[in-house]
């Protein structure tokens, strides 16, 4: 299937003011991100806070244009597209945010929230919009009488359903899901994940699922991209990533994820230290100060994504075959 999103060395640099008399600093939030998303698949983007996954979401939804590289969505280059093309493209890509308490206007009724994209982007009459909004409410598992209520009358899970209804109102092809279930309780999280799976099947949506929760990702994704300090470091089909992780950071992330049963996990490959400052990233591989396999080359040269079996991975230790095989752990059999 042809890719619906093609990112070629996409980057986003922010200029940060450091005070009145000092020059601005460049913060490279995302650098040289190259990946493709096929129509109808779910690509999960995984990483810890500060890895650039939300910046990537802002570029994919065209809230920001990349400062370098080319991003092609549905066959159109977002940097060179005209105003009319961009407008069409914007209704092709919609987003659901993490916090349903912050993403819905408390002064708007649910009906108005869901109708707003229709009002702006279509010529539907008020009656048609209302009919459509009620259909959308049913689609996400809410009832028509919820149309006239305010967001505060709903629980977190129901609010997230409203946010999903708004996102699919314009019949988009791509849905960017920015941590859609991290603010929800486990039982509610399962409801929303099931809803998203149903919608994808019914509407043929492409999902870009941003998350830090590897157990959720394993459940929803077809392919996974792991990011570290603004760069993708491993891209692999979901089963390969969990059974045969390559990059030492991916392995550490998997090892740090809590087990599903008591006494299941073996010795934890402890990751020391924290994410370095993005203002002053380490030379060479960005992961080298925390990596147990770092050597002279990783401290000076930067690895790029190379194919390794079904995986694309940016790591010299993998290239040179210095890495031990991944330790068997519960993820393999779970």
């Amino acid at each position: 299937m042809s890719p619906i999103v093609i990112a070629d060395k996409v980057g986003q640099t922010y200029s940060i003011s450091r005070g009145a008399f000092r020059p601005t600093a460049d913060l490279k939030a995302v650098q040289e991100a190259s990946f493709e998303v096929s129509a109808g698949e779910t690509l999960a983007i995984v990483g810890e806070s500060g890895c650039g996954k939300s910046t990537l979401a802002r570029m994919l939804t065209m809230i920001e244009t990349p400062t370098s590289g080319t991003l092609t969505i549905d066959g159109i280059d977002v940097a060179t597209a005209g105003a009319a093309e961009l407008k069409r493209l914007r209704s092709t890509v919609q987003i659901v945010f993490q916090n349903p308490y912050g993403s819905l206007n408390p002064r708007q009724k649910v009906g108005a929230i869901i109708e707003e994209p229709l009002k702006i982007n279509t010529d539907l009459s008020a009656a048609e919009r209302r009919a459509k909004a009620e259909k959308l409410l049913a689609e996400v598992g809410l009832r028509p009488e919820h149309y006239n209520r305010y967001p505060h009358m709903f629980s977190g899970g129901q609010r997230q359903r409203i946010a999903v209804a708004r996102a699919i109102a314009l019949e988009p092809k791509i849905l960017v899901l920015d941590e859609p279930v991290s603010a929800l309780d486990v039982s509610i999280q399962a409801q929303i994940l099931n809803l998203l799976a149903d919608l994808q099947e019914r509407l043929g949506l492409t999902y870009i699922f941003i998350s830090h929760d590897l157990s959720v990702v394993r459940h929803v994704a077809d392919r996974v991209m792991v990011m570290y300090l603004g760069r993708p470091i491993e891209i692999a089909p979901v089963e390969t990533l969990y059974t045969d992780p390559q990059h030492p950071y991916t392995r550490a992330l998997l090892a740090a994820t809590p087990a599903a049963r008591p006494g299941q996990r073996g010795e934890r490959a402890k990751l020391v230290g924290e994410l370095p400052s993005p203002f002053n990233p380490p030379k060479g591989c960005a992961f080298n100060p925390r990596c147990p396999f770092a050597d002279e080359r990783t401290r000076t040269e930067r690895p790029t994504l190379k194919r390794h079996g079904k995986t694309m991975v940016a790591c010299f230790a993998v290239e040179e075959g210095r890495l031990p095989p991944p330790s068997p752990r519960e993820h393999a059999e779970a």
């Binding site: 309780d185 039982s187 399962a190 157990s215 459940h219």
Partner: peptide, 23 residues
């Protein structure tokens, strides 16, 4: 039992078992 079943890491593909309603 329902809380444990709703953990994605314990699910085996397909739909997750959920607990209907809210607290």
């Amino acid at each position: 039992a329902a809380l444990l079943a709703a953990m994605p890491e314990r699910a085996r593909g397909g739909r997750l078992p959920t607990i209907p309603g809210v607290v």
